[in-house]
Write a protein that binds this DNA or RNA. Sequence first.
DNA 1: CGCTAATTTGACGTGAATCAAACGGTGTGG
DNA 2: CCACACCGTTTGATTCACGTCAAATTAGCG
Lengths: 230, 230
Amino acid sequence: MNPALACAECPVRDRAACSVLEPGERDALAKVGRMRELGRGETLFAAGEPVSSCATLVTGALKVATLDSEGREQILALIHPAGFIGEFFRPFAEHDVIALSDSSLCVFAGQAMEEAIDAYPALARALLRRTQEDLHASRMLQALTGKTSGRGKVAALLLGFAQAASDSPCHPAALFELPLSRGEMANMLGLTIETVSRQITRLEREGAIARRGKRGIELADPALLSQAAA
Amino acid sequence: MNPALACAECPVRDRAACSVLEPGERDALAKVGRMRELGRGETLFAAGEPVSSCATLVTGALKVATLDSEGREQILALIHPAGFIGEFFRPFAEHDVIALSDSSLCVFAGQAMEEAIDAYPALARALLRRTQEDLHASRMLQALTGKTSGRGKVAALLLGFAQAASDSPCHPAALFELPLSRGEMANMLGLTIETVSRQITRLEREGAIARRGKRGIELADPALLSQAAA
DNA sequence: CGCTAATTTGACGTGAATCAAACGGTGTGG
DNA sequence: CCACACCGTTTGATTCACGTCAAATTAGCG
């Protein structure tokens, strides 16, 4: 029922970890993988359950999150297309991985991927690179969360989204859609929904940003926003 | 001047990434590495400078940190013995890496390590594992920083230190030394020195912890501390 | 059109930041 | 050995930002 992989039409075929493989190698790996579709809100991995598979995100977006002891969700990372999910070396999933929007993934059994790592050194290298990038992203997010003022957190998060939405690595997109609800943004930053809402309203009043439709954000004054992110 | 490596007496010889190598392979790698000593406060890598080497921490402790636009230092990670520092795939260091205490490291040129990765698949695998663990640790720290109350942040950080100080992976050490000053703890958590100090005093008054000397902490009531960390 | 969920806005109290001072430890010079 | 300055820490008083509670508004959907 789960369709076989069609790497030829894969939109992330030259950005994902598997892109470093030779055509023949990738075909071999493709034989042991399968596609999986996930609806918005559906869970890929749940914290605590044994996890024996890994995946590359092809389209959509995922969040990595934990539930603290009071049941509040805390978002630890966002995963974009070409991102990789999967912790070998760890028997149980530590965090929930949930679809933020309808998503499609390319799933492999953990063991098959481990064998592939051993068989294709380039793949191990590519996964190492990707994991180092994830680590870097995680630390950037942490730097953001560690700011003392709510204003700074929200401004910096918006800037981060603008960066992620842009094609160019340096310049933020002038207009983009928020990938998260207010509540999710609040969970990410250690704030409340109300505070996030107020800070966005305030940034809009001050002219740093403008809202375009429900979740659209326009960077009216990027310099002012950067300053607010201080 | 920098002494050659003496893997035979290395205290992390069977925990560091290089422990997966065969004796002959490790000898070959050791030939291109060298020891480096770092005094407390000395910088290993500075953000922005080109970085062409990587290292395994042998003794001591390091911090990974950034300076935000106002010059406040934000600690992003702690590195313990057997930990690995080094981002291949990235021309410039993104963060400062500074010794928290007198430390000794085993340093390799980035290129030499990259060649070793290609030559020894087990090494690539080990580094992937270590990086995934760092990623996990980073997300744990983030979950901690994302808590809304200062009390919870401080309590959770203390628990984290107790875990790290313990030999056993599950149980926290009953007595341990704080690796960080108040100011560094505050920077890590997005709080101020005063708030950290007050929360520690409060946890002590409530009987969750007791101070033993200058930086010693005793877990008088671990359950109470966990509860405070909620 | 009416229901439900998400967002915004308001009023209020609390907790953390800020400003400021006192208290230790540690090293230095008298 | 003591006086003194220096640094990290603790403690206090005050201000203000964020959390909380609650209501109004808007969006989404059948």
